[in-house]
Amino acid sequence: MLDQSQGYVTADGRQIGGVLMEMKDITLRFGGVTAIKDISFDIHEGEIRAIIGPNGAGKSSMLNVISGFYTPQEGEVWYKGAPRPAMKPYEVARMGVARTFQNIALFEGMTVLDNVMTGRLNHMKAGILAQAIWWGKARDEEIANREHVERVIDFLEIQSIRKTPVGRLPYGLKKRVELARALAAEPSLLLLDEPMAGMNVEEKEDMSRFILDVNDEFGTTIALIEHDMGVVMDLSDRVVVMDYGKKIGDGTPDEVRNDQTVIDAYLGVPQE
């Protein structure tokens, strides 16, 4: 269990738990380029944590470090109170980290239902032979997981497109299906890489509502990257601000909004 003594209460009165994930002095380099430099921050259980920053600040790289796609040269990732050894992305996913992608990464050849079902893969254990015969455990498992997937589909209001091939869907819906796939995995930590990129106002409102609902109903911890400042400030409990691979701010939306370094990074500094 996590150490709950580190929990806090948010501005809107929600009780936040202990530290779920902690980044300790992470440095990530690609050859001579330092994408992330000595960054530390933590993500508490049950909170919505945003990572913001100008383009090229290293936000996506940070998310990729969390999801195990990149291994940092220095620093440690602590997860559920223990340092996480270097592992493959699929192993990280099996530890309860699910994510969505900046550019939609759905399986275009499959239906919405099958896409969301892939999110359940780590919960399905039947052997190949049992699957081939489609009997006993394999079939029960398929049906049990289908029920779970249907709950997610209901939750995100995509019932009507259940059996539509993903390739035929419009952009906004694809984003929602991607969220469904990540949610189906019942993650402890949900990573959202620009969940509202390219959406119109209405779609953004829908997506914001879903993110809040997910956090509220399932208690899922969410870490998100987003460019729309209005959305970020409204949604998140705490914000990390990055610029040129460094952390320049960390705190509640209000603290960050009034931080001079952050304002300088976003608005620029007047020439002397």
Binding site: S67, P89, Y90, A93, R94, A105, L106, F107, E108, R181
Partner: peptide, 11 residues
């Protein structure tokens, strides 16, 4: 369909 995404969702 998308091997990188597949790996990141746990395959």
């Amino acid at each position: 369909d998308m091997d990188i995404a597949a790996e990141l969702i746990g395959i």
